[in-house]
Design a protein around this nucleic acid. Structure first.
Lengths: 220, 220
DNA sequence: GTTGACATACGTACCGGTCGGTATTATAAA
DNA sequence: TTTATAATACCGACCGGTACGTATGTCAAC
């Protein structure tokens, strides 16, 4: 069971589990920390800001988390990983027709993304760009999320290939990584330009790519 | 005339103009600041580190730059913009056959990128992810670089389409943004995974995309 | 009376930025 | 050629503020 997040109701990343932990002090810290990190990045995220926003005191924060880094890890593990899964990975598994379902997902994405999503960008790639080369703990956690995403897309493509819907020359995993790259690059381009059109253009390009790798059977 | 950069000789971003300014105090500050920002991001870039690395004093720094932000702008305008141009934009303009030249460029990119490039990622997207939503001055400067890149790729595709080498259904600009997104997403994926293979997989996917949009004439 | 869940005050390090001062070079009048 | 003046190119101590982290204390529950 899920509810909308009070912080960014319009975000595609808004689904979160509703559990008791979310309502308690630890959950409040985690939610506020996610937001602070998404906006400012981890290094520039201010614990004081997080505390001010939640009303939680520093003693409480350090009661639940030994230091800032571990708080960051918890945000990745418990907030970001779950949001990416619910928004981008889990929907892939529900397709009847793998490729047409994917195309539909891509095209709907244009409408699903809010201005907040565009302005702040994907929390996963923001953190990846900042922390991957600085902290190994972040890097491994973020890599795990990416690998899961890549594998999920590859699974869809493999199934489509097995069913003869996409051409045999496609390497499912390489194409999966490429597709994920387009989606990530699209968000980055839209964020910098502050222009949804950049994302729509990538959405168009990705759709065209998917159409082109279809077999005649797949098209029929 | 260009020389290799003393900081990261193996980087694809290494070409830089050799001029007197590069050798003087201001140039030293700019070079060190570029490196510090590339590694730590702008907000976490420490002026003290930059000064320590160059041997330049704080007085000298504030003689040439009114504040940290303006130093950051100068790094974007004078270092990053030039490096991106020389490494990614200018080569596009020299192709004889637009599409085959592009494919060759993509495939060579796999070898051209060094471990440093992979570890630190593209300085443009690192800064974009961090600063686009925080500082408008950074955002407009970075957007200008992206727009130039997108337009350059679009020009190549338009020419190829005019020459009947790629299919008519391709929207050159949308495809250009998509191609740029793949390249950027590829670097990000490789950076997080610390694995060149991710980049090679995207390179393979992008090559396949380019092959698929070729007309029979283009293939012949 | 011990444990968990906080609250508050404090410490230290580092941050970007300022400011008075100096050494060197450029300009130009004498 | 000398001298006066001005501008440029630094130098480095110092400042207020904020950062993360810690130490100690409180209070309810079991």
């Amino acid at each position: 069971m899920y509810v909308m997040n009070e912080i960014d109701e319009n975000s595609v990343y808004w689904w979160r589990p509703l559990d008791d932990a979310e309502l308690d002090t630890r959950g409040k810290i985690l939610t506020a920390a996610y937001r602070e990190i998404h906006v400012n990045g981890f290094q520039s995220a201010s614990l004081s800001n997080i505390l001010a926003r939640t009303g939680v005191t520093k003693g409480a924060l350090y009661h639940y988390f030994p230091n800032k880094t571990e708080l960051g890890y918890a945000v990745v593990d418990e907030v970001i990983a779950r949001r990416i899964y619910l928004s981008f990975i889990e929907p892939l598994l529900r397709f009847d027709d793998p490729i047409d379902g994917f195309i539909e997902l891509i095209q709907n994405a244009g409408k699903a993304f809010s201005l907040t999503d565009i302005e702040l960008g994907c929390p996963l790639s923001v953190l990846a760009q900042e922390m991957a080369s600085i902290d190994e703990g972040f890097r491994t956690r973020l890599t795990a999320i990416y690998d899961q995403w890549h594998s999920s897309i590859a699974t869809v493509l493999e199934r489509a290939q097995r069913e003869g819907r996409i051409i045999a020359t496609v390497d499912p995993y390489a194409m999966a990584v490429t597709i994920a790259a387009i989606m990530e690059g699209a968000l980055c381009a839209a964020k910098v330009a502050q222009d949804m059109n950049k994302m729509h253009q990538c959405s168009y390009g990705l759709t065209q790519l998917l159409q082109l790798i279809k077999t005649d059977t797949g098209k029929g």
